[in-house]
Each structure stands twice: as C-alpha cells, then as structure tokens.
Design a protein around this nucleic acid. Structure first.
Lengths: 188, 188
DNA sequence: CTATATAGTTTCGAGTCGAAACTAATAAGC
DNA sequence: GCTTATTAGTTTCGACTCGAAACTATATAG
C-alpha cells in the first residue's frame, strides 16, 4: 500500500460516510438526532448529559442544545435535573424514544455488513476502530470506550460485590460495565 | 461476529464518517465542494458533467447545481458548453482548482491511514470497497469504477492502438483508462 | 411537428452548525 | 463570607446543505 492507495482509501471512507449519512434520514429524524438517541441508549448513567454528548459528537454545545430541544419536542427524550448539581440535566430516553430505536436506519447498514464474509467483517471493525481512536487521540477527544475496558475499572471490587469505578467512586452493575462512559480511559 | 457486533461496526462507520466530515472543512470550502473537486480530478472526460457528478454524489441535481455555482464563483472550475449537445456543460478544473487540491484536507485522513499497520490498511480498503459497492448496488446507483475494470473496455483495441470503449465508441489513452467513469460496469 | 425526455437553474423552506452573548448554579481564592 | 472564576446549558444569528418543485432550453421520438 503506497501513498496513492491510502488516498484512495480515504476517498472511500468519505464516500461511505456520505452514503450512510444519506441512509440515516428516516422517520423524520436527522442523522445527528439518531446518533444522539443511539448514544443515550449506550451511555452509562454518568454520561447521559448534554456535555458528554457534546464531547461524543465533537460539536459545540449550542448545536447539541438545539438537537436535544428537537428530540424533546418529539417526546423522544426527557430532561431531568440533577439533585446535587442543579445546573446539569440527565437525559432520559422516553418509552417512545426506545421504541424509535427499533426503527434505527443504521440497521440496514448493519445487515449489509452482516452479509460480508466474516473475516472481512472482523478486519473492517478492527481497522475502523483503530483509525477512529487514532484520530480522536490526535484531536484530544475522548474515546468513549466501554466502562469495563477502563483503567479506573475495578472488577468485582470485593468478592461477590459489584464492580467499581475508582474515578467516580461508584458501584457498577453488569449493564453499567458494558456501557460507554465519557470518562473512560483505556487500560494500557 | 454476531448481529450485535455488526451493529457496533455500523455505529463505528457512522462515527468515522462524521469525524471525516468535520475534518473536511478547510480553506473555506465545504466537504461536498471538496468531494466535487476530487471527483473532477479523477473522472474521465465523459464523466465530467453535472449529471454524472449528481449520480456520483447521490444528491439531487438542484443541490449539485448550487455546489457547482459556488465552485465557479471561487474560480475553481469552469463550465464549457458541449459543441454537439448544447444543453450540457463540461466541467473543467481551473489551474486554481488544481492547486486547491494540493491542500485537500483528506490528506490528513490518508496519512492517518498510512500509519496503520499495512495488513490493517489492506483489509480496511477491501472491506470498505466491498461494503460501498454492495450498498450502491442495493440502491441501484452506479459504482463509478475505473474505466479499465469495465466490461466495455477493450484493451489495446488493435495491436499498437489505444484502448477503446465499446459503449461510447471512443478511444482511450492511458490516463483515460485509469479514470473513473459514470458508465462503468464492472467486468464480472 | 407535436410529445416527451434530458441538462441544468432557480426559488423556497427546513434543517445543521459554529460563534458569541447570555442565564444560572457551583467552585475557588482570599 | 464575598468576590471571581468556572461549568452546564440556552438563545440568537448568519452561512451553509439539501430536497422538492417549478422553470428554461435543447434534443429526440412518434
């Protein structure tokens, strides 16, 4: 693979991104609105805030605020004020929001991926993940990896006890541990 | 790789697309404007029209018309009326347009790709290409492959002569043959 | 010689996005 | 305590993308 080839691959990435974006218009939702719903579905309870979503998407907070307003208007999410810090809101998927995710247009992408040969699938996933993380790192953006792959994650804190986050000093149940977290820092 | 994994990969694709799009804002040009310049740089002489670009991008002709107007306003392209069919214009990169391509923000993407391990690079390129073609096919969109990989391509039409396109009935020089074509249909 | 198809433009309205100014609540310095 | 950041989030504005639909002009088919 010489320089011309990687240029070719970069164009390929651009085109695939554009294609997916075009397919992501569905049910009257914008691509970025779908992305927000997906995020809220996968983020752990510490990460379901406008600030974390802003970091995840790499947009400005003003832009994200508008997206959330639109989603709230469609009754797909709800804002719930934090008891301790009354500046901040927890974003909650409504039942309707969860139902909306059943019609996620990204399912078409996933099923197209699924019809590729398994080794191709694995290579694609690994390559994309490596590329994404290297770019996020270069831009000093957070990786938003899984909680259980984090350096602050203590597995089975004490025997029989739940897992534990040494940064946020919080207990983590099984679901929490598989969710993505804005504070996540990959272990090694 | 089960269904959940492909869902994960689909999200990865979405995020990478979004990231590249964000990086693609440079020099006062919009991502789609860069994409048009790149297209015009790679398309053969039969494919450098608004109609072909419209098919390539998968947008409506009205939208593409605006993009081209903007590029013409910046003196990066020129429209040149076809002698035979006066409805249609040939799009020509100006010298300035060609110089603009030297500052293509996609170069950052390419160099990030280049720093991945070679096998990862190859797998990524192959996987993306396979995925893209399968989606384009599903949407009945043209693949815009290289002229020389086309079923209408006659290599060295007669000994010592240039290559030849059996669809457009035109001679093809070496550069033409490596360019992308809106009429391209992959051989087998 | 009219019908229709094709290449492209224009106008409009809805939406994304960043910049910057803004409110309100919390944390930090002294 | 009291002032001064800092942080969470909203609002407003302007530039831009995009699709839909109506439009012009040229070419082709019956």
């Amino acid at each position: 693979m010489d320089k011309k080839d990687t240029g070719r691959t970069a164009v390929l990435l651009e085109r695939v991104g554009r294609l997916i974006n075009q397919e992501a218009h569905a049910d009257g939702l914008q691509p970025v609105q779908w992305e927000a719903l997906r995020y809220l579905d996968r983020a752990n309870r510490f990460s379901r805030t406008a600030a974390a979503l802003t970091a995840y998407l790499g947009l400005t907070k003003g832009t994200v605020s508008q997206t959330l307003k639109a989603l709230e208007g469609k009754a797909l999410i709800r804002k719930q004020q934090d008891k301790k810090d009354r500046r901040s809101n927890h974003l909650v998927l409504t039942a309707r929001g969860r139902r909306q995710l059943d019609r996620d247009p990204l399912a078409a992408t996933a099923s197209a991926l699924d019809s590729l040969p398994k080794p191709t699938q694995r290579a694609l996933a690994a390559g994309l993940s490596e590329f994404l993380n290297s770019r996020l790192d270069a831009q000093q953006r957070q990786p938003f990896g899984q909680c259980s792959d984090c350096q602050y994650f203590a597995r089975k804190h004490q025997d029989g006890n739940p897992h534990y986050c040494q940064l946020l000093k919080e207990r983590l149940n099984a679901a929490d541990s598989k969710a993505i977290c804005f504070e996540q820092r990959p272990a090694d």
